[in-house]
Structures are given as structure tokens and as C-alpha cells.
């Protein structure tokens, strides 16, 4: 079947099967490989994108369910001029990523959190990341980056 949706502000369509997952549509059909797949039990969050403004796991949603939806992926998160958005910049400033594999999902989760809760507490940040696994960072710097992106003072990375 043919489906159409808006991805990062651009209309996109493609031929899919019933079983085609949103993440497959994004990666394999649209070539947007920034969205990653880290598990097959819907737990790691590497595949997190926004559908109609809400954070979802694109590995746990059929592409056909996104018919007509507004989808945002990591490729759509930078500022219009291509520079890093506030959240992305905070991840770099605070060393919130190492291998980068969980990072797209982390950024998407962080953006969803800050939209609903512009000044979260540290505990709220950690709770919000319940469905996003990172094996590299121990989370410390991810949490710091998100708090910083919310405009709250955090100690800067080591001098």
C-alpha cells in the first residue's frame, strides 16, 4: 500500500506492506538512517521519533499508522541554518554522548520532555529516560545536558 506523511516538514510517500515498521520506512525507504534500532523488544529507545509532536518508538509502530502524520526525526532537529539546536548543543557541551548510537533517541526524548516540562528536576529527567538505554555514558552527562538545555545551571564539563 502507498502511504504518505510529513517527515521533518517534507512530504514523503512510499510503498509499504502492512508489517513495515515506521523505523523501516524512515531508514530503508526514506534513507533517514539517523534513527537507530537497538533492540527487538521495544525497550532501548534508540528508535525514538516524534509523531504528531509526541515521542514514540518507531520500531513499535507500523508505518501505515503514521499515514498523514507529522513525523520528526533526529535529522529534523537542527536549527534551520543547520546549526545545532539548544538540546543538541547541550549534548556536545556536556559530553552527553560517546558512541552516538543512543543519541538520536536521547535527543528526541529530551525534546519531548522539555516541551511538556520546560524546567524538569534531575529526578524528572531520569524518570523520563526510562525507555532510553545508553551503554556508554552512565547517563550522568546526558542528564546534565538535558538540564542545561532547559536553561538550568549545571556545572560545566571538566576544565
Amino acid at each position: 500500500m502507498k502511504i504518505t506523511m510529513t517527515v521533518n516538514g517534507r512530504p514523503c510517500s512510499g510503498e509499504v506492506e502492512g508489517r513495515t515498521l515506521l523505523v523501516q520506512f524512515l531508514r530503508d525507504i526514506q534513507g533517514l538512517t539517523g534513527t537507530h534500532v537497538g533492540c527487538d523488544t521495544s525497550q532501548c529507545g534508540a528508535c525514538t521519533v516524534h509523531v504528531d509532536g509526541r515521542q514514540v518508538k518507531s520500531c513499535t509502530m507500523f508505518a501505515a499508522e503514521a499515514e498523514g502524520a507529522e513525523v520528526t526525526t533526529i535529522e529534523g532537529m537542527a536549527n534551520a541554518d543547520g546549526s545545532l539546536s539548544v538540546i543538541q548543543q547541550a549534548f556536545q557541551d556536556h559530553h552527553g554522548l560517546q558512541c552516538g548510537f543512543c543519541t538520536p533517541g536521547m535527543v528526541m526524548a529530551a525534546a519531548a520532555l522539555l516541551k511538556d516540562n520546560p524546567r524538569p528536576s534531575e529526578a524528572e529527567v531520569r524518570a523520563h529516560l526510562e525507555g532510553n538505554l545508553c551503554r556508554c555514558t552512565g547517563y550522568h552527562n546526558i542528564v546534565k545536558a538535558i538540564l542545561a538545555a532547559s536553561g538550568q545551571a549545571v556545572a560545566v564539563a571538566a576544565e
Partner: peptide, 9 residues
């Protein structure tokens, strides 16, 4: 229940 993404779906 679950995490924010799970709760959205």
C-alpha cells in the same frame, strides 16, 4: 506504565 513513548501509544 512503561516509559513515555510506550504511554503515548
Amino acid at each position: 506504565i512503561g516509559d513515555p513513548a510506550v504511554r503515548n501509544r
